[in-house]
Amino acid sequence: MSTFALPVLSSNGSLEQYIQTVNSIPMLTQEEEIELATRHQQHEDLEAAKRLVMSHLRVVVSIARGYAGYGLPQADLIQEGNIGLMKAVKRFEPNRGVRLFSFAVHWIKAEMHEFILRNWRLVRIATTKPQRKLFFNLRSMKKSFAALSDSEARAIAEDLGVKPEEVREMETRMSGQDVSLLADDNDDDAYAPIDWLADAHNEPTVTLERRAVDRLQSEGLLEALSTLDPRSRRIIEARWLADDSGATLHDLAAEFGVSAERIRQIEAKALGKMKTALHSGVVIDG
């Protein structure tokens, strides 16, 4: 029996090339899927498990596209989704009469959601130099709490040397009014970001995060970064504060000579430490 090697997203590879590779892998028929899943379930056949995973990697890519609006690296979203897919294959029971695709959607989304919740809105709001300039100056330059008019947006853009659409985008992102894209709960094929998450709009943690954004306009971000050790700070700055799209987990894994999973652990711990530092300086009214 031939050996199957899972395609991987590496620091030297191309996301487009990866997508082309996984899209070239044929989908399984229902009979093939049942036969492979039965072999894996009854005999722990890893070869069968690999074939099940490989044939559904394109599903992960498709779901990851639905989360592009969060500004997180597609490669990392796909990597997280692949973990969810492997968990789904491990738990899949072919005699239930459900296709693996439908069963795996929940596990794939769950891993992506956890990744988004860990990383979104803490420091990602200002990553490029123009965005940082907007972030630290836009609120003070607004004349009121009302939305900017076209003329006001153009004036601020000219003053700061950025585009009017960048002013509009930053105003929206700083407003705290996150867009929730809901889908039909009965549609297993709908790739909506909120399908599997509770409504957290009024949760205390969300309120604290919004107030922490205000502190980020002054000294908050620098103070939070100063609490990190050099390696953690390097990882946060490379991932979230770089002028370009940010380094991937694999880029930093190669730099520090550790696994991508270890980089993710360090990153998660550092973000948690920064969040604690930011929240400790937020005054809660009432």
Rank of each mutant, 00 (worst) to 15 (best):
G71L: 05
L72D: 07
V98H: 11
Y70W: 14
K90F: 09
L85T: 02
K87M: 13
A68G: 10
Q74N: 10
D76H: 04
I63H: 08
K109R: 11
A64T: 00
F92D: 04
R96N: 09
Q79A: 07
P73E: 15
E80K: 03
N82Q: 12
E80V: 00
H106R: 13
E93V: 11
D76C: 05
L85C: 04
A75F: 01
V105N: 06
R65G: 09
G84Q: 00
I83Y: 12
L100P: 07
G84Y: 01
N82Y: 06
G81I: 00
Y67N: 02
G71R: 14
F92S: 02
W107H: 12
K90H: 09
Y70D: 08
A110C: 04
N82R: 10
I63K: 11
G81H: 01
L57Y: 10
F101G: 05
N95P: 00
V61K: 13
R96F: 07
W107Y: 14
A64C: 06
R91K: 10
A104D: 07
E93W: 09
N82T: 12
K90D: 10
P73R: 15
P73Y: 14
I63T: 05
R91W: 04
V105L: 05
P94A: 09
G71D: 13
I63Y: 15
R96Q: 11
D76R: 11
G84P: 04
V105C: 04
F101V: 08
G81E: 09
A64N: 08
G81Y: 10
L57R: 11
R65A: 09
I83N: 06
S62K: 12
I63M: 15
V89R: 07
K90R: 10
M86Q: 13
L72E: 10
Q79P: 01
G97D: 04
L85Y: 01
E111C: 00
R91D: 08
M86V: 01
D76L: 05
K87A: 12
Y67H: 07
A64S: 15
D76N: 13
I108M: 03
L85R: 01
Q79R: 11
N82K: 11
A68V: 15
F101I: 07
K90Q: 12
F103S: 04
G66C: 08
L77E: 03
L72S: 09
Q74P: 06
A110T: 06
P94D: 06
F101Y: 14
R58P: 01
V89Y: 05
E80Q: 11
I78G: 03
Q74V: 03
A110R: 12
F101S: 11
F92V: 03
E111P: 00
R91P: 01
W107F: 14
A75K: 12
L77R: 04
G81R: 01
K87L: 14
F92I: 03
I108F: 04
N95T: 10
L72P: 06
V61Q: 14
V61W: 06
V59G: 11
V98D: 11
P73M: 15
K109Q: 08
V98N: 09
A88S: 09
M86S: 05
W107S: 13
N95M: 13
N95Q: 12
A68L: 15
A104T: 02
Y67M: 10
R58T: 09
G81P: 08
